[in-house]
Design a protein around this nucleic acid. Structure first.
Lengths: 302, 302
DNA sequence: AGAATAGTGTCTCTAAGACATTATCGG
DNA sequence: CCGATAATGTCTTAGAGACACTATTCT
């Protein structure tokens, strides 16, 4: 395939060219991976009859070094030579959560100048979805101060301005990350520019409280992607334990989408994606629900 | 925000830490951007009565240097310090096509070891959509041997194997890139691994003819993304000229999706996204069609 | 006139939304 | 029996698919 006998303008063969290649001729950035590890956990509920409400969580680590020392950041680290980006992401994930073989998806690569005060850093962010039940079992690895933060966002305001051949829409959102002992927040502005026939979207951090680097922006972007993808793919199952009830599954959809769904329509929609078991949830204080499992055959339908 | 008085374990303030920071402590990759510039062009048609069929094109450049000298590659180049990835992409786009302010979207970042024989290279790929009518006017910049290649793919075969808790589906596709004087091709294998509740997808080049680096894989990925996005977004308009007929628009959808659409349903679907003009296409050899333009108000609907 | 495309009317089919109804547990 | 959730039935609505039919131009 690439064993051409060609020489370049200076008369070099490929081998000669590669031997003479100066790797230091261009300035190079550091490359890191940032992990957006999401899970859905049960909140405690006092009333024994009611279902425990769920909430979406994201894993953050407390920075023990400059810059942004003492603030919270996405787990991640440098990519090392010889490993692919995805390998680096899985390595970080293992050291952070001990969980392997979970859903992982590349999200976006961030390379704005000045996003790290130390040096030129480009970060590829990966979204991972883990099932909380398998996690709660081994949550004892507090060595480096990692915490699950409840994640919520709130619409703040929107403005629209006409331009000569389109419009500019600015939307402000507040991102809130809460934990028993701490609360982090940020304001993010999303600018949507319509020009002629094309649309451009940019994100910008307006302010951020105790969230390191540009990570508030990355988290908001990931949340948006998660919301979109849960509607047209089956990634929700990656957040579920082996056995789950349809109410559990619906709650996961609801907490991510931020709105209630009608049970009848929801059940119709997922009917082909799950398999019935003959087990029931016990001691519920009300009619017990049947456990289901993911239907791997479903993947063939499309 | 980040003016904390904290010191780290070695007692350094942030300023002291940054001054002492050794940027060379980690090995660093070269970072490039690769551009996937798509357009849809009319093919010549002998019969004056028939509509000229359209085809999807991608811009490639001939490599004049090792490695892969003489083969065809995606246009692109190194990212330089101080510019963001998107700025680098727009800069490459300007030098390659002279067109500015066009649809641009970050696709994926490729970082597998060995993807460039020279050194460790990580590439972020961007997809750009341009309207061919504005391009044909200034197609005379052949300085560096850039060519529009017609792009097609073809399903070859599929196998499915059961594993203990899921299955592996392998799909082979042939990618064909054709030009008046040259024809390039590649075979790509897509492996979909279902394990428990999660799905993983990987791509691999089986063979490639005269397509440099791992670019065949990137092109196939971009084509898939384009096909998906044209169904649920309005990116198709970025491929259209200012004025277009609904048949033109339908043809663009058809050539990208690779299947025919029903006119009645298509027109219903786009009805709110376009604005009528009172101009008609002339000298058509059949009933002339009305010209439409993009409706910028449409963006508000969602 | 006739080839070809432009554009519309309408029936069917499927899926989602809305909401009422029945079922079943723990206490 | 009551409070709560589980699960189903069914009417309505929106939209896609299918296809027939009419309209209009150029040579």
């Amino acid at each position: 395939m690439k064993d051409q006998p060609y020489v370049n303008k200076r008369g070099q063969t490929e081998q000669e060219y590669l031997e003479a290649y100066d790797v230091s001729q261009f300035e190079r950035p550091s490359v890191t991976v940032d992990m957006l590890v999401f899970t859905v956990m049960d909140e405690l509920e006092e009333n024994y009859r009611k279902l425990s409400p769920k909430s979406l969580k994201i894993l953050l680590v407390k920075r023990g070094e400059h810059p942004y020392i003492g603030q919270w950041a996405l787990p991640g680290g440098f990519v090392t030579p010889g490993e692919s980006l995805e390998e680096a992401a899985r390595r970080e994930l293992r050291t952070e959560t001990n969980v392997d073989d979970i859903y992982l998806e590349q999200l976006y690569t961030w390379g704005d100048a000045g996003r790290d005060p130390r040096t030129w850093v480009i970060s590829t962010s990966y979204m991972a979805l883990v099932d909380s039940s398998s996690l709660q079992l081994q949550a004892g690895d507090d060595a480096e101060e990692a915490e699950w933060y409840r994640i919520e966002d709130r619409w703040l305001k929107e403005t629209k301005t006409a331009t000569k051949d389109g419009s500019i829409t600015e939307k402000w959102l507040e991102l809130r990350l809460a934990h028993e002992r701490e609360e982090l927040s940020a304001t993010i502005k999303i600018t949507k520019t319509v020009t002629g026939r094309t649309v451009r979207e940019t994100r910008e951090i307006v302010e951020t409280h105790n969230i390191a680097f540009d990570h508030a922006k990355i988290i908001q972007y990931a949340l948006e992607r998660l919301r979109n993808k849960i509607e047209y793919t089956d990634i929700a199952f990656a957040l579920m334990p082996e056995l789950f009830t349809l109410s559990d599954l619906q709650q996961v959809y609801e907490v991510i989408l931020g709105r209630e769904l009608l049970a009848a329509a929801f059940r119709r929609k997922v009917a082909d994606k799950v398999l019935e078991t003959n087990q029931y949830r016990k001691h519920a204080g009300h009619r017990p629900s049947k456990y289901f499992r993911f239907n791997p055959e479903w993947m063939d339908q499309t």
